[in-house]
Design a binder for these strands. Structure first.
Lengths: 127, 127, 127, 127
DNA sequence: GTGGTCTAGACCACA
DNA sequence: GTGGTCTAGACCACG
């Protein structure tokens, strides 16, 4: 499953891109694997088709995926020639942690939150 | 006292909000203290009056400050004791941690980030 | 559906806020319903976009509505279940009753006013 | 004591005017009585001298009071020739009660609030 | 001088 | 099309 945060400053199409790259990075997606169709993903995530299209289009120009008319979308042969960095999220996290600190939340509280999320929310599947 | 990064993805009014909260949190601003007037800050930062107004308005509805017609803007009595806002911050954190997880950031990475933030911030009066 | 009195001492954005809350309260708007777009309402009422935006922004921080980029503005899940806002309303009431008392309004006068309001409003679905 | 609400839509100078008229109306102030000096009232209420001046000036042009250079300010002989109506407060109250109702506050809750205020807050003195 | 409200219009990102 | 941000400038009420 791909996780999308509507309210993030990071646009949805970037979130999707980053997560697909990550799935490739961790070996969950391998070259030649087929990605979910645009409409399929659109339905799953309840997100506009155009947004998914936007993500896929950028991934294609970056050489991460290939879309084949009438067949589907596939992971490219050398998908990670241009390595990508997950930076936006960490910036966001940084700001939010500072915000929470300023508002009196303790370090322990935050770490507990993280543990809880990572334990319960194992939301990695091949989708 | 306040700095603004025009090029950040974080809107200016939020940058200002966060910095004022920080100044309150560190004890530099105390209840009853007067903030710079919207026009004054507007000139200092070379930012439109309305943008400053926007920041101040949100801080007021969050109970951090009180603005008084014709007098100025002042730090509230219990500026950071607002359960609802703290809850909102935690919700935001929750979303972002999930987002980071989905994008392949490890639990340890996040916890390191937190440690770093809390350590550098520990010089503050209140934490 | 929404009316505005330009000459009132009550600012337009507050009039709009109150009427939307009322529409939610009476069950005319239900969670998930879509509100008119800011531009649409702006045209209908012949009021500047920013003024509408102002109303919607406050309602969002109060948890009554959610606005989603590119999609629209929607009634939140529990639009009126916000302890903090209710507390704020009661504080306002407190101030105004004291004000009325100081200006010679009798207890009975106020109670009559309340009865009248609650009676005429009793046709509403939820009260 | 005169009661002033900083956050009311009714301007402070009007609140003061109304309350003095009310004190005359109820016979607490009689023709010839001396009002507190501008500075005295300014200190008591922690309100700017100009604001008090504004109230007194209007009351004088309306014939309610006479100010005598170097002696003080006194209630006029026929102070209430032009009868005044306390309307602003009631409008405010009306709006707030509706607001509270919309937010789920019960009629009884409000009436309790009123009883409590009127019982404990007998803040009428000659000042 | 202060804050409060409103308008008009611009540009952006997203669906 | 949608909302989000920012600017410029106006007028008001209040201190």
């Amino acid at each position: 499953m791909i996780f999308v945060d509507n309210k993030s400053r990071v646009p949805i199409y970037e979130q999707i891109k980053e997560q697909i790259v990550m799935l490739v990075n961790t070996g969950i997606y391998k070259p030649g694997d087929r990605l979910p169709s645009i409409r399929n993903l659109s339905n799953q995530l309840n997100i506009n088709v155009n947004t998914i299209k936007h993500s896929y289009a950028q991934l294609e120009t970056e050489g991460v995926i290939n879309s084949v008319q009438g067949k589907g979308v596939f992971i490219a042969e050398n998908p990670l020639e241009n390595e990508r960095i997950v930076k936006g999220v960490l910036d966001d996290l940084d700001r939010m942690v500072r915000s929470a600190m300023a508002r009196g939340v303790s370090k322990e509280q935050i770490k507990d939150l993280i543990d809880r999320i990572y334990e319960t929310g194992e939301n990695y599947d091949k989708c």
